[in-house]
Design a binder for these strands. Structure first.
Lengths: 214, 214
DNA sequence: CCGTTCGTTTCCATCCGTGCAACTTTTCCA
DNA sequence: TGGAAAAGTTGCACGGATGGAAACGAACGG
């Protein structure tokens, strides 16, 4: 199955075949993403995406099961980098410090232009299929985050509550911050927004703000 | 459009027509759910579900766009009761107290038999479509929770960070507790499990457990 | 009691997803 | 370096899913 049998190293260079495969997948995902931004979700058809990427529409279906999946693919790839960014921090650093050091900046890189992200949110709000794909991507990110958190804390991701709980909460913070960055016009600094959310999580969720007012 | 025009009250009784509609929807959802539990996901086809509910397969498609949607429908309905249960608490109670008082017991009612829930988790882990539908249901629950939290705290769900952040984190706690209730064999008391997660959230996510061990 | 509205059902045209087989490119081993 | 094996791409064709139109029947409103 694996094409590079001559080298047992984990990071063996991909080989021409794998590189082409990754390139076409990247081209398809990017084409789908661009098409959605420029002409809306309805313009994203297997035919148009395949033509923009220079392959046949049949090949498109070899890579993605739906247009939504193709659109979110680029997004999903960026999400995966979050966990890697945390893993790249010094191993003896407390997890919370790593998260606070990495996530605000990483999130900024992920979401890209505010206008583009606004378009994505609008499309998602109008298409259940897009929402579902986005939630799937978020869920995968949660798994990756839980794994790296478990690595760092010496916990077992399958037997301890803490890694999944923390990962899920951090994801809620990321999602909340990103949403408000676009919809809530007042605050415009995404890293600060996320830092605020994460601080609340670490210190205990805001109890002062959550007393009944009536 | 609305069948009961003679009465402007919000809680006007549904009328026979609406009740029948709700009944067939309930029957379809229940049939799909039962079929999945007894014979697995593959046995859940529009034809079999419709036959079990006593309607035509075309009617099935009038209610649900896919078999996964039908299966999760029952589940989604139970989820929605979470927000209502919180709303039923005294209005002057702090939100955290309401959540801790309601959620552990409500979650127990929702998940039902442990064996059934285990089957659901297994099916979800094997079917991306089922996972997507489950995540959609969870997302809807998050919206409802954020709304009721905003009501109780006097915050604006669209302009304040806290309600969404808290709702998302609570959802992470619910999901984590339910998952470990099934997979982690040691702890068998679901309410205690959820209480532990919620306590961690309220007090600030576990920092003692999250120091690097290496 | 009658006209209207709405839900269900049957039929049907259409489209999408998928498997298959042929062709091309890359890889591997002698 | 040559050639066989493996993997990817493409067009075709078929089954099933998808959604609309019209007929029928039940429920609503007066």
């Amino acid at each position: 199955m694996e094409t590079n049998g001559h080298c047992g190293g984990m990071t063996a260079e991909p080989g021409l075949r794998a590189r082409k495969k990754a390139a076409t997948r990247l081209a398809l995902g990017h084409a789908a993403w661009s098409l959605m931004l420029e002409r809306g979700l309805d313009a994203v058809t297997p035919e148009s995406v395949a033509e923009a990427a220079g392959v046949s529409s049949r090949t498109f279906r070899n890579y993605f099961g739906s247009r939504e999946e193709a659109i979110v693919d680029e997004w999903s790839r960026r999400h995966a980098s979050l966990a890697d960014a945390v893993r790249a921090r010094p191993a003896d650093e407390p997890v919370w410090d790593s998260l606070l050091a990495v996530l605000p900046r990483a999130l900024t890189d992920i979401v890209g232009e505010r206008a583009d992200f606004a378009v994505l949110l609008r499309v998602i709000s109008e298409s259940p299929a897009m929402l579902a794909q986005n939630l799937l991507a978020l869920d995968r990110t949660g798994q990756l985050l839980a794994e790296v958190i478990a690595e760092r804390t010496g916990a077992d991701a399958d037997r301890d509550l803490a890694p999944r709980l923390l990962a899920g909460s951090v994801l809620a913070a990321v999602s909340t911050a990103a949403t408000f960055w676009v919809t809530g016009g007042a605050r415009t600094d995404l890293p600060d927004l996320l830092r605020e959310c994460l601080d609340h999580l670490r210190a205990g969720l805001p109890t002062a703000d959550l007393a009944p007012t009536a």
